[in-house]
Design a protein around this nucleic acid. Structure first.
Lengths: 344, 344
DNA sequence: TTGTATGCGTTATCAT
DNA sequence: ATGATAACGCATACAA
């Protein structure tokens, strides 16, 4: 058995409760006693037992992470490690640890969350956006358990804590960027329509077009999974139109890479023949040829803010519902240019 | 407060200990009682408290993950989420959860591990290879705490559980692949020499050359961080040699992407002018232009085996030291060809 | 300022 | 086959 509070107490000639108070740095303990006790702790290599502490104090100093199903494509996206880094630093700053459950199906995930929460393993939960949200969210709400969503929830978003970008605005600005360059045939290649992020970016895109008096073309909007293959398919469809677009708004860098490859295959040059802007600004945006103009959504901050604010909520349950909007900025690289007069 | 074992006991008219036995599905409880107790559990929505259980049973059913420092480049590498997926599935299969600590510096990481272990938060630990290993490993060994390393440890590897590929063999086969195509001016662009993986791949590379009677050229071996920029620098140096190489072995896909970009800039075509093979076979290997021939090291399995075998070790402390070698295979794509007679 | 006693929700050891 | 009771290691209300 490891050294416990009692061992320390015995050697320091104090009561266990005194040791406990020294650990908590209670103001009601004399400095002299503190010093002596601390020396003994060092001497014995004492470390508090988190489990016992949790049981007695009803607080674990751990926050639960609900991942998308591990079979999901999101896992392959560089978005994921980055947001994790942010979460991790946000948690670490307040001495919290991260606790993960995963599952291959939505049911497994749900069960994992329930076990984690009811089992008292965590003090709060962060949901990395995915489709399971519905059940998990309603469960957490019913239990009145502290949680934050990264990305905007499907519904009831006034009553749910979340951290997100202003994706409408991002979609709009990115489209305006292309309009300013002179484009008026702008297509949108997006992700899964079940995701709020996709819908909002499309709406921003449409708003920008409308504001500029450019008429919307239904065929210019294509949605599919956040995968690179779909990027490729989309390109084929778009470029076989009578009036192919001269610019593309692509909802994800990885998809944009697929688009880039397909265009290369077809002998179409970027940005000479067609312009591209994408979202997320992960490493590959920079490494693509040409380097992609991309919206930096500050993925790290998304995670960091989620952790930070969740912990605030945990430590102060009276905190009101919060919706944190992380700013974005467009990182201009070399994938956009003025339109050519004709394409193909 | 949540519903406890006592509440269930009271309503089911049994002792708390009986309920506990029902949860454990003890064979010494009659089916009739089990049924009744279970009904009450469902009725009340009972879920066992992990914390209390852990305290009493000295087992947390959680495994700790030691990440590289979050500022590290590894975090940017797609290797990371994939290995995490493997770990997660391996853990989940045995109903274990994952518990993460991270830190920005090696000291923070070390402290995190100590707190996690001494605090009794986890039953075992998996180290995702990094440079901190030294202190952390010696601490864990001293405490005789169950752990596995992903990747080969720096030293003392006969006494440490690890999961790894045969990187010597991989380096050798990949080089042979190029030799068979007719190359004899083959360079190696590797990662940090502090990493065992780098050293082993180089040794395999050298072995292959020696076996074929090709003499080693010092200038043909360049080592740097696992980053894309270094890939670029390396290319400049290599191609300015009197006898520039006709083929490159690159230790990581991400680096290879940097190499590819640089070559593209210089107007050198792959694989016509120069051939490339790389390692890890992450998504970008497939998405690069041209798609890269890469060594599939089965990253998922690295994680999965680590979790699985660690849990075995936890549940059966008598298990001997294990060294698990995960097989690899070369995935041939379009980045290799026969050498041209002259380059530049 | 410090000590004593009790409880947190389980599991485990004795009994019966 | 089941019940009573003592740990597990710590926090805290109450005493002193």
């Amino acid at each position: 058995m490891a050294v416990t509070i009692k061992d320390v107490a015995k050697i320091a000639n104090v009561a266990p409760s005194t040791v406990s108070r020294v650990i908590a740095n209670s103001s009601r303990i004399s400095e002299k006693t503190k010093k002596r006790v601390r020396e003994v702790m060092d001497e014995l290599g004492y470390h508090p037992n988190f489990i016992a502490r949790s049981l007695a104090s009803h607080s674990t100093r751990a926050i639960g992470l609900v991942m998308p199903s591990s079979s999901d494509a999101v896992f392959q996206n560089p978005f994921f490690p980055t947001v994790l880094t942010g979460l991790s630093e946000g948690a670490h700053a307040k001495q919290y640890a991260l606790h993960m459950t995963t599952g291959k199906t939505d049911d497994e995930i749900y069960d994992g969350v329930v076990a984690m929460v009811q089992g008292g393993r965590v003090d709060g939960v962060v949901l990395l956006y995915s489709k399971v949200e519905d059940r998990v969210i309603s469960y957490l709400k019913k239990r009145d358990f502290p949680f934050f969503v990264i990305g905007k929830p499907f519904k009831d978003d006034e009553n749910i804590n979340y951290v997100d970008n202003d994706n409408f605005k991002a979609g709009k600005e990115v489209t305006e960027h292309l309009i300013q360059l002179g484009h008026d045939r702008i297509a949108f290649i997006g992700g899964n329509l079940d995701l709020v992020v996709t819908v909002e970016r499309i709406e921003g895109y449409e708003k920008a077009l409308r504001n500029s008096g450019i008429k919307l073309v239904d065929e210019y909007i294509i949605n599919d999974e956040f995968l690179q293959e779909s990027g490729q398919d989309a390109v084929e469809v778009l470029l076989s139109l009578d009036q192919p677009p001269s610019a593309l708004v692509v909802a994800d860098d990885l998809m944009a890479l697929g688009v880039l490859n397909k265009l290369d295959e077809m002998g179409i040059e970027v940005p000479k023949d067609i312009s591209i802007v994408s979202f997320n600004n992960v490493l590959i945006a920079e490494m693509a040829r040409p380097p992609l103009t991309s919206v930096n959504i500050n993925i790290f901050d998304l995670g960091f803010q989620a952790a930070k604010n969740l912990i605030q909520k945990i430590e102060n349950p009276e905190e009101p519902i919060k919706r944190i909007i992380v700013p974005f900025n467009i990182v201009t690289r070399y994938s956009c240019d003025r339109p050519k007069e004709s394409l193909v």
